[in-house]
Simulated scan of single mutants.
Amino acid sequence: MKKIFLTAAMAFALLHSQAQTTAPKENTGFESRKLKLDEINLVSSYYTQNGNNAAVTGGIGSQKLTDIANVFDVKLSKYDSKSRKHTFGLEVGIDHYTSASSDMIDLHANSSASHADTRIYPSLSWSMENEKKGTTFALGLSSSSEFDYQSFGGNVSFSAKTKDRSGEFTAKLQTYLDQVKLVQPIELRPSGLLGHENYGSAARNTFAGSLSYSQIINQNLQIMFLADLVQQNGYLSLPFHRVYFNDGSVHQENLPDSRFKIPLGFRANYFLGDRFIIRTYYRFYTDNWGVNSHTADIEVPIKVTPFFSISPFYRYYTQSAAKYFAPYQVHTATDEYYNSNYDLSKFNSNFYGAGIRFAPPKGVFGLQHLSMLELRYGHYTKNINMNSDIISLNIKYK
């Protein structure tokens, strides 16, 4: 928690000093070709969870975990000689977590090295929008690094608006090339390998194609259709997840080296007068591991004043179990694949909470360029004895 408030305080100090020294520019209609700052976003969050189905200990044991996350996002833009808008984005995220289940990779440890970790995930993006033609081309690169996982990603997308600008089609390709460090449960490591050396690694690659189409039906209703095709190949297990067979023996999780996923989604936003918006979302998901799921989400932002709003939300989720899942001491020696991670079990969940948003015309706390402050809280529950809470703070500078 200390990290969240220190970061927020530093951001407030920085934004306050810039707000005092930067004078507003007149809008003359001229499109400057110089690079200008569009916005800066700072998002800080604190997450905590508890449960009793830890995959590290074979589907039983504490899932207690805490995570502090900070994401800093900067967007810059300029127009070129052909009046095309170029937008450049830089995002840097840092998460730090402590996990009771990860600590049990070594069953005899007391606050071992694996009980906590820090993940750093920077990304770069660029887009070029031709406002006259209604088209946008974009590229992105990303990276994520932690003790046992390294990921590099890239994406390319193209968007085109309809002639009357009421609809937009988007196609996107993404890839993630990952390396998983093969950190085994301590009792399954080769003799003499007790420290952090010589773990070895394995590749995991993800390729995804996305299509979406959004349409303004009328001044009150907007809809969007979404479809994805996702192919994963390589080492798709987690090496420190234990599985206990019905004979009492312990093994490493073993899953197929290929997985194909199809998520299909639909969004609809309805503007109910000047004070209410009804945002809805539905997603159907299926894959070749036997998991089928449904997600239904609703959020209703309520404008209390022109500059202050409250947004209660609720999400329901349900899924079937993967065909390779079984609880503690249920798998047998005849099973080709085996897993006791309850993320692949049959369950349903509820997530509900609310956000408050403050965006006064003279700036938050009277700081002209500090344009928005949002605070959100959510409570999450699964029907398999797991629950969590998250609180987040979003500050925007424009």
Rank of each mutant, 00 (worst) to 15 (best):
S345W: 00
Y317S: 01
N198H: 12
R204G: 01
V291H: 03
T21V: 14
R165W: 09
H251S: 11
A160C: 02
M372G: 00
Y97Q: 06
L344F: 11
F365P: 01
V56N: 01
Y285L: 13
Q319Y: 08
P122N: 10
F260A: 13
S81C: 04
L139P: 06
M372N: 12
V156Y: 01
H108W: 13
I105E: 05
A8Q: 14
G290F: 13
L375V: 12
M372W: 04
L370W: 11
Q215H: 15
N27L: 12
S309N: 09
F271P: 00
D287I: 03
Y213S: 07
W289V: 02
G209R: 07
D343N: 14
S142T: 06
I216F: 08
N220G: 02
Y380H: 04
S77N: 13
E253Y: 10
E197W: 09
K132T: 15
S201E: 09
F158G: 07
A202D: 03
S349C: 00
M104T: 07
Y316C: 09
T136S: 07
A296Q: 10
M128D: 12
L182H: 04
A208N: 10
S249G: 10
T87F: 07
I223L: 12
Y324I: 15
D80T: 09
F169E: 01
V183P: 00
S309G: 06
L211Y: 01
G209L: 14
K2G: 07
A100F: 14
M104N: 11
M10P: 04
Y97D: 10
P263W: 04
F347V: 03
D247M: 06
R283L: 11
Y199W: 12
T318Q: 13
